[in-house]
Structures are given as structure tokens and as C-alpha cells.
């Protein structure tokens, strides 16, 4: 199908983009890579009056690194991020990216766009949540930083106000002796995940768990974190891994749809939570994350 008619504006700075959003409100819609929005426009699932194309904003495609982590600008393409060595400091994003769409859609799709879109099965919102990352929002009123857990509200719904633009996502650096892993189950390579799981763990010198974040996507209206606070201080073992599997299954109430039954999703959630936990622990023990 073809999109409903829309007007087109092309800001050349973030100030111009937020001015356009301020002017058009809910009738305006930002397009970055367009790999989700393009399909929704073509199918007329959305029909904005004005499309705000941010692709030619100078500097919006930059990746900046400091001691605390990396800042990924609004138009950084997924394929560029995958190749960028600065992202080795935040390995979970690199673990997640090969699962995002296909190389042909990663060539155009952006990191920030996927997170702003907030599909409940998408990989990057889950990776940001498990990384304990945040979203930088800007409007004419100013800039605010919203933690991923607060930003991701529900299916295709975020804490972004209608005059705000996602100008960057913020990914904290992984601490020493840490490991991460990402895995998912999908019918076809590149499809949205039926269940996706991510883990980020760190260990102290004797090998006990000092921090642990394990999350799931595809099992509810938004990606979730499993409550693992009681496992801090434990030594990784089969028992701990089984505890993760149980907790994963108890933390979710998935729906049944044409792709998978709720029962099957619950089964997969346990398997994949354990799988990413085991892989993250192994990498932390090896002293460095793969990448």
C-alpha cells in the first residue's frame, strides 16, 4: 500500500527539529531510518500530517565516548554501530545488533529509532534496559534524561512527550570482570523475536556475583527485568542458573498469538534466560566479554 499524504520538513539542526515538533505536536512524526515507521506508513497504521526527516541533521550520527559510557546520536545507523570500536566498551549493544532485522534494514535503521518505536519484541529496547541505559530527550523546553525502565511504558508507547525528540541513547560502560550475552528465538533469521533474552553480570575477585541484570522481550507489553536482587553475593552455579530459569517464568504473563502459545513463550523464556545468564557468567569468568 501507499502512505496517506503527508507534508515533509527537513530540519538541518536539532533546534529546527524540536521547533517543528513543537509546532505540529501530535500531527508531526520524526522519521530517522524509517525501517519500522516506513512499513507503518505504507500500511496506513499511522498517518501523520507532517513527517520530520532528521537524517540530514549535522552531527546527529555521532557516537561519543567518555569514562561513564557511550552516547549514540539520533541517526546512528545500526550497521555503523555494529562496526564502531567505541561500542566495545558497551558490549551488550554489539551482542544484540546482529539479531536486529537484516543487514539491509540495519543499513538504514537507527539505534535510537528502534528504541523510540518501542516494539515489545524488539532487541534494542531490551538491550538498553538490561544495560541500565537511558534516553536523552529534547524539546524547546529543554533536555531531560529518562532511564530506560521509565522510558519504555508499553507497546509502541514511551515516556516521550509529543514535542520531544530522542536525541541520543546513553549506554553505561561495562565494569571490570563483567560479561554479557544476548540470544533470541525467532521463526526466521531477522524476524521479530518470539522471546529475546539479555544478561549483564559482574563478579568480584573470588568469583561471586556483584551485579546482575537479566531481561526478557516478546513476553509482554514491554521488555522486563527479572528480579534477581537476591542472587547478589552468590557464587554462580547450576542452582543459581535454575533459579534464574524459574524466576524468568514466574515474572511474565505472556499472551498467545499466531506465532506461539503463552505456554510455549513461558517455556522459552526460562530456557533463554538461563542460556544468556550462563553465557554472561562464562564471559565474566574469562575476564573479558567477547566482541
Amino acid at each position: 500500500m501507499k502512505p496517506a499524504p503527508f507534508a515533509y520538513v527537513r530540519p538541518l539542526s536539532i533546534a529546527e527539529a524540536v521547533a517543528a515538533l513543537g509546532e505540529h505536536g501530535s500531527a508531526g512524526r520524526i522519521i530517522a531510518g524509517g525501517q519500522s515507521l516506513g512499513a507503518m506508513l505504507n500500511m496506513r497504521l499511522v498517518a501523520p500530517k507532517v513527517l520530520v526527516d532528521i537524517n540530514r541533521i549535522a552531527g546527529a550520527n555521532s557516537i561519543e565516548k567518555d569514562r561513564t559510557g557511550i552516547r549514540v546520536g539520533a541517526t546512528v545507523r545500526q550497521s555503523d554501530a555494529l562496526r564502531h570500536t567505541d561500542l566495545n566498551a558497551t558490549p551488550l549493544i554489539k551482542e544484540a545488533l546482529p539479531h536486529v532485522g537484516h543487514f539491509q534494514t540495519r543499513n538504514r535503521g537507527t539505534i535510537c529509532g528502534s528504541i523510540a518505536h518501542a516494539d515489545p519484541s524488539a532487541e534494542l529496547p531490551l538491550a538498553l534496559l538490561v544495560s541500565d541505559g537511558a534516553v536523552e530527550l529534547r524539546s524547546k523546553r529543554g533536555t531531560r534524561i529518562v532511564a530506560a525502565d521509565d522510558f519504555l511504558v508499553s507497546t509502541l508507547t514511551t515516556a516521550r512527550r509529543e514535542d520531544e525528540m530522542v536525541v541520543a541513547t546513553l549506554w553505561p560502560s561495562a565494569p571490570a570482570r563483567s560479561g554479557c550475552a544476548f540470544d533470541e528465538f525467532a521463526i526466521r533469521g531477522g524476524d521479530y523475536a518470539i522471546v529475546a533474552a539479555a544478561a549483564q553480570v559482574s563478579l568480584d575477585a573470588p568469583g561471586n556475583i556483584t551485579s546482575i541484570r537479566v531481561g526478557l522481550a516478546g513476553v509482554g507489553e514491554r521488555p522486563i527485568l527479572i528480579d534477581t536482587s537476591q542472587l547478589i553475593g552468590d557464587k554462580p552455579s547450576d542452582g543459581v542458573a535454575e533459579e534464574i530459569m524459574d524466576r524468568a517464568r514466574r515474572s511474565i504473563e505472556p499472551i498467545s498469538d499466531m506465532q506461539a502459545s503463552a505456554e510455549y513463550r513461558t517455556h522459552l523464556a526460562g530456557i533463554f534466560a538461563r542460556r544468556v545468564f550462563d553465557a554472561a557468567i562464562r564471559r565474566a569468568q574469562e575476564g573479558a566479554s567477547r566482541v
Binding site: 515533509y8 525501517q35 516506513g38 539491509q104 534494514t105 543499513n107 538504514r108
Partner: peptide, 27 residues
């Protein structure tokens, strides 16, 4: 398909393989 799944419309834009149904000519 006109929603980025089938890949039939893939072209190279500045050397990169991209779906021509998911980008507007004006862009």
C-alpha cells in the same frame, strides 16, 4: 511486500543495500 520484508526492491543508496519501499524519493 511494501513493508520491508521481502527484499525485492533492494537498491544501493550511496553504496549500501537499502529497501526502496521504506524510503521516500524526497529523502
Amino acid at each position: 511486500c511494501e513493508h520491508g520484508i521481502c527484499g525485492a526492491c533492494t537498491v544501493l543508496i550511496d553504496g549500501r543495500a537499502v529497501r526502496a519501499c521504506m524510503i521516500f524519493a524526497i529523502q
